[in-house]
Design a protein around this nucleic acid. Structure first.
Lengths: 250, 250
DNA sequence: TGCGTCGAATTGTCATACAAATCATAACGT
DNA sequence: ACGTTATGATTTGTATGACAATTCGACGCA
């Protein structure tokens, strides 16, 4: 079920969409400008017009471009294209400077996640409690397996967002999930893990006993520490995560 | 041609996408199930396969469905489809119960908007200040023109989100903009407007003088008042939702 | 029973043709 | 000379038909 490259490798129109979308976000086609005609893309990329058109349909759906007869397909303003889209996000990560990206993501996360925890404490149902406990169990069981720990961590936070029973929180959790997963292949938070585990336990307990204030508090503590951990990573002194993403921008 | 009610989207594939997307969100096609084949849609809707395919491309881009050979196009789980997409949002609004929708939106808004104001106070550039002042000027100048006031109000808040200089805040502002605009066609003005104008002025001033704490405070005050007005709407006494629509825009 | 093979169904891609929209330009009338 | 209208050209939109790729299911065979 976790096929990620499936979208990239197969389906021609998705590959084409990837190419064009990335080119747009790279600034190769400036906002407001008209990008090459379908026919030109056909020739450039060596594919049929159908493929190009279907790719462009995807970009239209993501708000990156708008197409009108005779005028051509125009690149829309960056404020208009829908930043939460997984693909848009993926392209952004491939191009962004890692540190500022992290900074911005945490700005939003600091705003949202405590509120999400609060709402989760208020509105979570039993199935949410079960899933949250299960995810926490996976974190406990992760041991030295970094990959497992990261996955469990992400699952834990996703549970919180879903437990809010508010669909509008989901995509934000998704944003962090995608961002963090893309950015760190393996996180280097090893020495902080016992403390992080305790913080997660506090948050889980607060949600389970339906204590919104405590949940908010626990989330804030957790985020504060996570933020400093990130700052540690950003220092060139410690172990550096593999930074494969930010190179694509050059 | 089957449905003549949708005059906004000329393009056939967009109308088709609207129909199918709405049907999916209406639960007509359950998550995990396979929806009718392209050929069947062609016959049902009386359009060519091209139109259906391009419509489905849009739905794929929005995460609503995934298509694989022979298996058909499967409806993905609701957590997977990308809730921030303007169209998805629009469909949701058309189907949602208004009061719970408002409630959920404000849960998120309470979390995000004070933080956005804080960030705007810190990171706004001159062009942002100008645009914010301009939008506020439009609000002042709106007078008795309700439509103008609502538009100016939405523009004002959009300015704040953009002034954060954090792309991840944008789509959330977009969410509110779309939601409020779709929900209330044109709002009747409330007697709250003078107070609302003052609150907006406070917020603007705090951002202009780069005072994050004050900006956060001002946003919270404004949201608190808007929230209570919303609560009035939710009274089952049959009060018209239109009454407080303009307050909801804050 | 277990296995491979083949066929059918469905999406994926291609090619072509024409329709619709719209901009540029030329022709026309006043 | 100027504005208006007709015409044409260009680009996207839609339709249609064909074939490829993939995969499920059923049949036949050992």
């Amino acid at each position: 079920m976790t096929n990620r490259n499936w979208a990239d490798s197969f389906k021609l129109h998705l590959r084409v969409g990837d190419q064009i979308g990335l080119a747009i976000m790279r600034g190769e086609f400036a906002p407001g400008s008209i990008l090459p005609t379908e026919a030109q893309f056909c020739q450039t990329l060596g594919v049929s017009r159908t493929a190009v058109r279907e790719a462009v349909r995807g970009l239209i759906a993501k708000g990156l471009v708008e197409a009108r007869s005779k005028l051509g397909t125009r690149v829309r303003a960056p404020e208009d294209w829908n930043q939460m889209d997984p693909d848009v996000l993926k392209w952004r990560i491939q191009l962004a400077d890692t540190s500022t990206y992290l900074e911005k993501m945490f700005q939003l996360r600091n705003a949202v996640e405590p509120a999400a925890a609060e709402n989760a404490a208020m509105y979570a149902r039993e199935v949410d409690h079960d899933r949250l406990s299960e995810a926490f169990g996976l974190m406990e069981a992760a041991g030295d397996d970094n990959a497992a720990w990261v996955e469990a961590d992400l699952a834990f936070h996703k549970c919180i967002y879903i437990a809010t029973r508010n669909e509008f929180f989901w995509p934000i959790g998704q944003l962090f999930e995608i961002g963090l997963r893309e950015m760190f292949s393996i996180a280097a938070l090893g020495q902080h893990r016992p403390r992080a585990l305790e913080e997660h336990r506090d948050l889980r307990d607060a949600i389970l006993r339906k204590d919104p204030a405590a949940a908010r508090e626990a989330a804030q503590v957790m985020l504060g520490n996570a933020r400093t951990d990130i700052d540690i990573i950003r220092e060139p002194t410690g172990t550096k995560p593999k930074r494969s993403a930010d190179r694509a921008g050059e």
